[in-house]
Amino acid sequence: MNDKLKNTRDEIVRISGVNPKKCMKCGKCTATCPAFDEMEYHPHQFVAMVENGDIQPLLESESLYRCLSCFACVDRCPRGVEPAKLVEAVRLTVIRKKGGNRLKTDDIPALLDENIPQQALVSALRKYAK
């Protein structure tokens, strides 16, 4: 792992507050994940890949935007690892970069329909933009 990757890894661990070493590789997070089918990397892989410093594929993956933040993996993990917080930290690493916004304000009007609640907009902006 080069220094740059190591720094990214350490930063992700720090801002998420997650200690990936606590993982015992049981796979309950992935078992419980409602976004499994839509994800290229699954919750247990996020934990293992961050621990191993294998970050680049995660930064480039669509999986970052499929996590529903439903916290099922957080609640059901027997070791208190909190994978969703790790996914969020990786996503922020991407979004906080210049030009890293997933959702651009200009795109929003096209996404609206008559019934869409304000909550959907603000939540999406929180998740997909800085």
């Binding site: 976004a35 935007y65 529903l68 959702l103 929180r126």
Partner: peptide, 19 residues
């Protein structure tokens, strides 16, 4: 107590729909 698809409806409505 399973997720409805939440805010992902803004990014991937089809996925959200399944949930």
């Amino acid at each position: 107590n399973e997720c409805c698809g939440g805010y992902v409806t803004m990014d991937d409505p089809e996925f959200s729909r399944k949930k």
